[in-house]
Design a protein around this nucleic acid. Structure first.
Lengths: 355, 355
DNA sequence: TTGAAAGCGGTACCAT
DNA sequence: ATGGTACCGCTTTCAA
């Protein structure tokens, strides 16, 4: 107010105040300010008030960078995902962030665009940002550079529904994809399906492998069942191409399982192009739910997991690791939600003749 | 390999190497290491090689915190969103991140869970993290604390499809929601609809207000048109409640516009509960696309915007601001995509009699 | 109970 | 062309 201010100096906002400014204003030492703010005991009430007043007056907010610099902790977790715009992933991220926030951690999400080299770049970047820990939803578990990169890291890492040889089991949070697949397969088989195709995502990640395995096992246990697994990539384009091809084979599968949200979109497009009806002409089962899946006609049968929980559990495990504990390995359930997109297969003989 | 290693010393990983270690190993001064790494000129080839070798050998990675501390720049942008699990938002985030990354910026996304006080907390937190700039998709533009909070900030802020009085126009990126709404309304009107209801999100944010305005204007220009705008919140629950109520009125609207993804889900649920068919009994138009919307039966007519672009433009504007430029205000288009969920209204008289 | 000063890991200025 | 050093904003001994 009564401050001396030359006409054209400091014309704009005052610079961000630091502890120094607070200390000066309160007429105390910098270290005292720090003590008050860190809630240290052995500070007189007078001191506390003087400092707090100055803080309020200046609108002072401690610099987290400087704090991190000193303490060595950034209270930041990095989460590397393939594509945040995938609703499955964004829910996982939300679940993780929620849990981390409760413990005072912030989360930085970065997208690898499903490219391993970007992923590695991001890992390095998070390392340079001194993230206290990493959550990884890898684009590919088979990247040869990865294991050594992770070892070089000086912070704990938790894989989200991914597997990696050599990594301790309690550094990975898994879903039991087989369970859901088996339920779905039981359903299809009992409906009379004897030819089932899985249009699968990339085998470089665990969920796809587990689903493929589940189908193979099921086939082994049911010798009269024809199965085909077409693993490729998590894209609509891929889903379209494979569905289109499979459904035009001489004796096409009577049931399709789409290995991801993105693949599902491609499959639906192919179905539409071929004017095939679900479930009359072919049964369809999706992996992972979408907001509108239950409102489709027919409502889509879905193999579900709880993505928010998956993210939350991964975060919890990471927090435990951060505390130096050795948490138990986590495996989360998946299950089949029957809606209306699977039904008995068309009587193939007849159908074929009619065409 | 041939290293001397006492039995129980350094049993685990060596500590993160710093510039000091690099300098020692290369037998040069710390400042020289810095110069080499910052690509400074005036460094001899010998020096460069010595340093680079040491860096490689040690796997040294510069500490971004320390850099930021000195330079004052964190190369980090904070993005505060209501809910990253909303596909619209996550696409916006992806668009923004992509653009920022190209300029070397990282992005921290945090969720406000649609609560203003969490939003404020996050703004403060980003400030303390010394984010170089902020992207805001506010839960509510009417939070009274907000303007002063933003003024206190010493970094540029860009609002994403939000408006705020007193903020310069080029600090906001807007969508032209009226355009898309008008196209949709033209369509409905020409189909013969004379009673249209907008189940709208919260008026505390611009998109909802613009849509409401568009509908009101349209009504004013078409005196024979009955309209109702029910603004509330962006949730399925709200969408369900309002749709359920509206559709049971004595003379219910013949066309519904759902003001968001979440609202849409509620509306669909209500429609299902009431056993109403789209578009035979009622026409339905969605705001903002969903991956499965085009595969619904009927495929959903949708008022679209390009969320990736929206995020990208917001990021570009922020980058310009960061460079000290004064970018032009941005307004992005929206448009109506006709699919199959709107049709002529049922002949109301007859229908009413038949019931 | 409070103050002074070292140091976290870099950058950049000033000498040499 | 290279080395020495102050400093960024804070925490944390150590003394007083």
């Amino acid at each position: 107010m009564t401050e001396n201010r030359p006409p054209d100096a400091r014309p704009a906002a005052p610079p961000r105040p630091g502890m120094k400014e607070v200390a000066d204003r309160a007429g105390v030492a910098i270290s005292s300010v720090s003590r008050v703010l860190s809630g240290h005991r052995d500070v007189s009430a007078v001191m506390r008030n003087r400092v707090l007043d100055a803080v309020a007056a200046l609108g002072y907010e401690p610099d987290i960078l400087a704090q991190s610099m000193r303490t060595g902790e950034t209270m930041t977790i990095g989460f590397i995902v393939s594509d945040i715009s995938n609703p499955l992933i964004s829910e996982i991220a939300l679940g993780a962030e929620t849990v981390l926030r409760e413990s005072g951690y912030g989360m930085i999400v970065v997208n690898s665009m499903n490219e391993s080299h970007i992923e590695l770049e991001h890992i390095s970047l998070m390392n340079r940002r001194r993230a206290d820990g990493l959550l990884l939803s890898l684009a590919s578990e088979t990247n040869p550079t990865l294991p050594s990169t992770l070892e070089r890291l000086h912070v704990p890492v938790v894989l989200v529904d991914r597997h990696m040889k050599g990594l301790e089991a309690n550094h990975m949070v898994h879903s039991d994809h087989r369970a859901g697949m088996n339920e779905a397969l039981d359903r299809l088989y009992s409906l009379g399906h004897r030819s089932i195709a899985l249009i699968n995502g990339s085998l470089a990640v665990r969920p796809s492998r587990e689903r493929a395995n589940a189908l193979r096992r099921f086939a082994k246990a049911h010798p009269d069942l024809q199965t085909s697994v077409r693993s490729g990539e998590f894209t609509g384009t891929y889903g379209y191409a494979v569905a289109h091809e499979l459904l035009q084979e001489p004796s096409p599968p009577t049931a399709l399982i789409a290995g991801s949200n993105q693949i599902l979109v491609g499959v639906l497009r192919a179905l539409r192009d071929l004017a095939l009806r679900v479930p009359d002409d072919v049964s369809l089962i999706a992996c992972d739910d979408s907001p509108l899946a239950e409102f489709m006609s027919p409502a889509l049968d879905t193999i579900k997991r709880d993505p928010k929980r998956l993210g939350g559990e991964a975060a919890s495990v990471l927090l435990a690791l951060l505390r130096g504990e050795s948490p138990d390995p986590v495996t989360l359930p998946t299950y089949f939600e029957q809606r209306a997109s699977s039904a008995s297969p068309p009587t193939t003989q007849k159908e074929a003749l009619l065409r």
